[in-house]
Amino acid sequence: MSILPNSTEQVLQSASSLSMEKQNVDTKKQEKKVESDGISNTQKVWTSLISGAIAGALAKTTIAPLDRTKINFQISNQPFSANAAIKFLIKTLKTEGLLSLWRGNSATMVRIVPYSAVQFTAHEQWKGILGLNGLEKEKPGLNFLAGSLAGITSQGITYPLDLMRARMAVTQKTEYKTLRQTFVRIYVEEGILAYYRGFNATMLGVIPYAGCSFFTYDLLRNLLAVYTVTIPGFSTSLIFGAIAGAVAQTSSYPLDIVRRRMQTSAIHGPINSQHYHTISSTITKIYKEEGIMAFYKGLSMNWVKGPIAVGISFATHDTIRDALRKLIVYQNQKQKKDN
């Protein structure tokens, strides 16, 4: 009679043991997914995507009037000066109204939201792939490479939208009314390859731009950590981002001039467009007609708008990302206590 209870007890103990082992395995799997900072890589990706998208949208909307002014000087033979830029802004206000200063900003938003989201996320992921997390000071070359690869990744995905934004920024509203109309008109009049006019120049330019931008920003943050006990806040990130933006803009600006000419040359007709089909022909034409300083036309405005945009972008991204991740860690810790 005593055999049955003992047998039943052994079966229950065995089942309980198997259940405990399964729970332990599941717990270990979850622990492997969650990294040392308390969040998983999946959570890192989506928090960086959200914060990057908001950061890019806010930064570009802030400097949109200056951006439109800069592009108009980049694609023309008119010499740039602060006085000429102010006259352009006043003329645009009088003839087209206040909102015209943000003309093309809808196209910018369509592009910059995915661009900025992908760029910040790609940078973090490339740093992980290259084994850089926490070792930026020891491996500056790889740190620069991670930034460049992030720029290439984001620019490659969103390039056609950048071209359409440039077209809308330098034309009257009657020529390209909407982003959809711009997309269709370019395809009908110039063909599908027109969406990638200036692509090579852009890729060459984004390597020093994104590389210098992320490298300088990380360098300044690391120096702050070494020589002070200050934790970088919004204002500190804003200043470091502004410095990074100035360095990045200066390093890549000549190629920015080249790509803008290639992107918008078709507006002035096929005869003008044929001189801007390749990087070499574009450089040659600009140099012969306008001289070496033409490659830096509007750079002084970029020293104003670039640092503002990059500073806002970095500071906003880091603030939102850190807030989201703190919330995730808090919720994870709360769940562990409840369990």
Rank of each mutant, 00 (worst) to 15 (best):
Ser14Tyr: 14
Tyr187Ile: 05
Gly233Cys: 06
Lys139His: 15
Ile239Tyr: 14
Thr95Asn: 14
Leu193Glu: 09
Ala315Lys: 04
Lys91Ser: 15
Arg165Lys: 11
Ala59Phe: 07
Ile129Leu: 06
Leu18Cys: 02
Ser235Tyr: 08
Gly311Leu: 10
Phe214Asn: 09
Ser148Met: 13
Lys22Ser: 11
Ile50Val: 13
Ser51Phe: 00
Thr174Tyr: 02
Leu135His: 14
Ala55Trp: 02
Leu224Phe: 05
Ala117Phe: 05
Val34Thr: 13
Leu12Glu: 12
Asp37Ala: 10
Ser2Gln: 08
Leu204Asp: 07
Asn6Leu: 06
Ile157Ala: 11
Thr216Glu: 05
Lys91Gln: 14
Tyr287Val: 00
Leu255Lys: 04
Ser281Leu: 07
Asn6Tyr: 02
Ala169Gly: 01
Val226Leu: 13
Ser81Pro: 04
Ser100Tyr: 06
Asp256Glu: 12
Ile50Leu: 14
Pro254Ala: 01
Ser273Gly: 02
Phe240Asp: 00
His275Gly: 02
Glu289Pro: 00
Ala53Cys: 04
Ala210Gln: 12
Lys337His: 03
Gly298Pro: 07
Leu58Asn: 01
Met168Trp: 01
Gly147Thr: 03
Thr178Cys: 04
Asp322Asn: 09
Gly134Trp: 12
Val188Met: 13
Ala84Val: 00
Lys70Arg: 07
Gln249Lys: 08
Asp338Ala: 14
Glu35Gly: 12
Leu132Met: 13
Ala244Arg: 09
Asn41Ser: 15
Val118Tyr: 03
Leu255Val: 02
Asn222Val: 00
Gly128His: 08
Pro232Lys: 12
Ala150Thr: 03
Trp46Glu: 02
Lys139Gln: 13
Glu35Met: 05
Gly311Thr: 08
Ala85Gln: 06
Ala309Pro: 09
His268Gln: 10
Asp162Asn: 10
Ile328Val: 15
Gln23Ile: 09
Leu204Gln: 10
Gly97Cys: 00
Thr62Cys: 07
Ala194Ile: 06
Lys326Pro: 00
Ile50Thr: 05
Arg261Pro: 01
Thr236Asp: 09
Tyr253Thr: 08
Gln43Gly: 05
Ile157Glu: 04
Ile129Ala: 05
Thr27Phe: 10
Lys22Gln: 11
Phe234Gly: 04
Pro232Ala: 06
Gln335Ala: 12
Arg221Lys: 15
Lys70Ile: 10
Ser48His: 03
Gln333Lys: 14
Ala53Trp: 02
Thr92Gln: 12
Pro114Leu: 10
Leu98Trp: 13
Lys297Met: 03
Asn6Trp: 03
Glu138Met: 08
Gln274Thr: 08
Ser7Trp: 09
Tyr296Arg: 11
Val110Met: 13
Asp338Asn: 13
Gly141Leu: 13
Leu4Ala: 06
Ala266Glu: 05
Pro65Lys: 08
Met293Val: 08
Ala59Trp: 06
Ala248Arg: 10
Gln333Ile: 03
Ile54Trp: 11
